[in-house]
């Protein structure tokens, strides 16, 4: 399997990457870990004529503590996130989610920013990003902006990122208690259902991935939460656009969502 021809440019700084992206417009794709992009290019499902490799931009490869937030560079790999002491201590749920992704080799290459920008509806991070109310930091020709988790995921494989923007970092509020519970699709090991739940005061915040074309906050559960797991029955209230395939049809997937929300609430 060989991708169609393309030009490859390795950006040495964010500024350079942004300039290149502006220059090449629709023709270009950003290459980070490449673990979604390269296979789809090999299958010739994606045929960008320019790849802008941001993998070498070291300013996007750090994990830092900034007040009440942990700031994770978009280039951080799943392995970095799973094993970072800062993440483990302050946003443990994120390291749990990172450890559920793919396998050792995939975690060594795949990045947080890449995964979020790709917005695969069965990917793991969105549930945690939503539950934690993380903010996505993006930069484009008009400068830097932050996008709230709730506004970020817009449709199947579609986010609030503009064509000229690159995710540079994700800011996670510190979380005292959180859990990520996942039901694995047996072939791809992506999430049939992934539920992230965190404690916030007396309440909970719950993000759900895998179930719908767009990951969502289980607000009905959050509203009904009474300290027990009984609110889990509301996990699918108001959810449409439910994914159906030969591993899980709508009925079963909806059932799993309720089960995994319950498990998440019990694990909190």
């Amino acid at each position: 399997m060989i991708p169609a021809k393309f030009d490859y440019i390795k950006a040495s700084s964010l500024g350079e990457a942004l300039t290149l992206l502006q220059e090449h417009g629709d023709e270009a794709k950003i290459l980070s870990g490449g673990h979604s992009l390269i296979p789809s290019m090999k299958l010739r499902l994606a045929t960008p004529s320019v790849l802008i490799d941001i993998g070498g931009i070291s300013e996007m490869n750090t994990i830092t503590e900034e007040g009440d937030e942990i700031v994770i560079g978009a280039n951080c790999t799943h392995h970095q996130i799973a094993t970072s002491d800062l993440v483990r201590e302050h946003v443990n749920i994120l390291s749990q989610a990172a450890l559920c992704i793919g396998d050792i080799q995939v975690r060594n290459r795949g990045t947080l920013g890449g995964s979020l920008a790709h917005a695969d509806p069965a990917s793991d991070y969105p549930a945690t990003v939503l539950a934690c109310e993380a903010t996505i930091v993006a930069e484009g020709k008009d400068g830097k902006r932050t996008i709230g988790a709730n506004d970020f995921f817009q449709a199947l494989f579609l986010t609030a990122l503009q064509d000229d923007e690159i995710i540079t970092a994700i800011r996670f509020p510190k979380v005292s208690q959180g859990t990520y519970q996942k039901f694995f699709q047996s072939a791809s090991r992506f999430a049939v259902v992934g539920v992230a739940a965190i404690k916030k005061g007396d309440g909970v915040q719950i993000g759900v991935t895998g179930v719908s074309g767009v990951p969502f906050r289980a607000t009905a559960v959050e509203n009904a939460y009474d300290g027990t797991s009984s609110a889990a029955k509301h996990a699918m209230d108001g959810v449409d656009d439910i994914i159906s395939d030969h591993f899980a049809d709508e009925e079963y997937r909806s059932h799993l969502a309720r089960v995994y929300v319950k498990r998440a609430l019990e694990a909190l």
Binding site: G34, V106, N108, R109
Partner: peptide, 22 residues
């Protein structure tokens, strides 16, 4: 396409699937 792992090598000390690294 990074599914089977037969192509695994180490890149700067880390195992990677070399089919999915340019």
């Amino acid at each position: 396409t990074s599914g089977c792992g037969a192509c695994t090598v180490t890149l700067d000390g880390q195992a990677v699937k070399s089919c999915t690294v340019l």
